[in-house]
Amino acid sequence: MPESRAASIASFWDAAASSFDEEADHGLRDPHVKAAWAERLRSWMPSSPADVLDLGCGTGSLSLLLAEQGHRPAGVDLSPLMVEQARRKLATAGFDVAVTVGDASDPPAEAGASFDVVLSRHLLWTLPDPEEALRRWAGLLRPGGRLVLVEGRWAINAEPDDDRSYDVGSASLPWVGGVRAESLLRALRPLTADARVEPLTDPSLWGRPIQDERYAVVAFV
């Protein structure tokens, strides 16, 4: 990603960092929401301990759940303030987890080069070239590894220019507003041997009822 664009996107998420965990599914402060995500993660992960790359890790809530389940997460996020919060959250809980500032679409070498799982949640819509990112992520997986992609389509009528808050110039975000499950499966087909879709309609995951499309794709290489 061009440096100027990365800086603009990082600035956007830096501005959101202080209030990010106020959303029920971000901070997982509600024990019922936390338990719902812990149960889903457990069902998507291989037996522990697994090496998991948490891309677009934000404030580290999913990385913390993974560490609590005995896995070895590593986080990457473009926002320095998000990374700072993630490091603090994990350290406070007693876990030594590497969280790196970097472009999740092209993870930095210091994050690692070989994983059992690459995990992302609501990240693909933010990327200028999400299909290229998927190719890179699949290349980080060991034989038999899996992509776990928590996604959705929550802005049905969104157009590429609708998300002006990024202020990243004329280039569009192809999946702004989210991506439908069938479109994501189509992009994954050349990269993976098998993929399944799991609807995520349980209000416990979001702290409220939802009306839009939300799902997870678990895809194996």
Rank of each mutant, 00 (worst) to 15 (best):
P2A: 15
R5I: 03
R5Q: 12
A10R: 11
F12G: 01
D14S: 00
D14C: 00
S19N: 12
D21R: 01
D21A: 02
D21E: 15
E22C: 03
L28A: 12
K34P: 00
R40C: 01
S43N: 14
D51E: 11
L53M: 07
L55A: 09
L55V: 09
G56Q: 07
G58Q: 05
G60I: 00
L62F: 15
A67I: 08
G70P: 03
E84N: 11
L90S: 06
L90R: 09
F95I: 01
A98K: 14
V101F: 09
V101D: 15
A104C: 08
D106C: 13
P107A: 12
A109F: 12
A111K: 00
G112V: 05
S114V: 01
S114Y: 01
D116N: 07
V118Q: 02
L119K: 14
R121P: 01
H122K: 08
T126L: 08
L127T: 07
P128N: 10
D129M: 01
E131C: 12
E132A: 13
R135D: 11
W137D: 13
L141P: 14
R142V: 04
G144A: 12
V148A: 00
V148C: 01
V150W: 02
E151C: 02
E151V: 01
G152P: 06
R153S: 03
R153N: 04
A155I: 00
A158E: 12
A158Y: 13
E159H: 04
D161N: 05
D162V: 10
S165G: 11
A171S: 14
W175P: 07
G177C: 06
L184Y: 15
R186L: 15
A193Y: 07
L200Y: 00
T201E: 06
D202T: 11
V217L: 08
A219I: 10
